[in-house]
């Protein structure tokens, strides 16, 4: 029996899923965007090269553990040592998460759907956080897996690994919120990259100046505060407070929860700035 089927317009009567689904889908989409998945090959170049550079020390570390039978790099210091790479990743990729939607005015296409500004911004922050966290967590986990397999004498450094993973998450949230807040101020990607990197350089270039001069003036206690100007050392200070790890800075940090309070305040400020920025963008 022959039949010609109707391939005309079909109505959709399947399910229409709620906010959880759309927000999740947007998060995944943005995350793919960070790594250039589903985009031309050259969009993948920067994120994947940086990710590869991030894993290199972990592999070298495993090699040291296997061949020389001694502990490799510390988990708690990984983010601080690799901070330049993480910062470049943030500067290069944060603008790709927010700038195109502003520049090419894609935002109205989202807002004409059941997606609210809050969900949109939330998804972007989560995506950037996950991307940064992956950048940190993958090498840490690779290194930890290596340590377990190699079975060095003594117990594995499980507590340090877990601590590093948790503080890594905090660092990722802080960097993501801040990076996106700055990058979203301009629809121009180049200016966004410049702004993020400028702010990071500003922070990190001031630290040694402050620290060494204060130290030479004999003011050790004040000198320790200098480290908190840089987000990587700031979060390391939280790690020292919570997990009792060795500080990755000369002379340690000011004690107590103050660093944690600063991180929380900074995250809140960045999220508020993002919310304000997008409320304005939406009303246009």
């Amino acid at each position: 029996m022959s039949e010609i089927y109707d391939i005309g317009y079909r109505h959709y009567d399947g399910p229409r899923l709620g906010r959880g689904h759309t927000t999740r889908a947007l998060t995944v989409h943005s995350l793919r965007g960070v790594f250039g998945l589903g985009r031309p090959a050259r969009s993948k170049l920067v994120p994947f090269s940086l990710a590869a550079i991030m894993v290199l020390p972990a592999i070298v570390s495993i090699a040291i553990m296997a061949l020389m039978r001694r502990a490799g790099m510390s988990y708690s210091g990984y983010a601080v040592i690799m901070q330049a790479v993480v910062a470049i990743f943030l500067a290069a990729q944060a603008p790709t998460v927010v700038a195109p939607d502003l520049r090419f005015r894609v935002l109205p296409l989202y807002l004409s759907r059941p997606v609210t500004i809050t969900e949109y911004v939330g998804a972007k922050v989560v995506a950037m956080t996950v991307a940064l966290y992956a950048l940190l967590a993958v090498p840490l986990t690779v290194m930890f897996a290596g340590e377990l397999l190699i079975d060095l004498p003594g117990p594995p450094r499980t507590k340090e690994y877990v601590g590093a993973m948790l503080t890594g998450l905090l660092l990722a949230v802080l960097l993501a919120a801040f990076g996106l807040a700055i990058a979203s101020l301009t629809p121009r990607r180049g200016l966004g990259v410049a702004s993020v990197i400028a702010l990071y350089l500003l922070a990190s270039a001031s630290v040694p100046i402050m620290y060494s001069t204060l130290l030479s003036a004999g003011n050790d206690a004040a000198a320790r505060w200098a480290w908190l100007l840089n987000p990587f050392w700031l979060v390391d200070a939280v790690q020292v407070w919570v997990f009792g790890t060795t500080p990755n800075s000369e002379g340690g940090y000011p004690g107590g929860p103050v660093s944690f309070v600063i991180v929380v305040l900074l995250i809140a400020a960045a999220v508020a700035a993002l919310a304000l920025r997008y409320r304005k963008a939406a009303s246009r």
Partner: peptide, 11 residues
């Protein structure tokens, strides 16, 4: 954008 309107991935 279809997913942003709530459609499951396959649909």
């Amino acid at each position: 954008l279809a997913r942003m309107s709530g459609l499951p991935r396959t649909a």
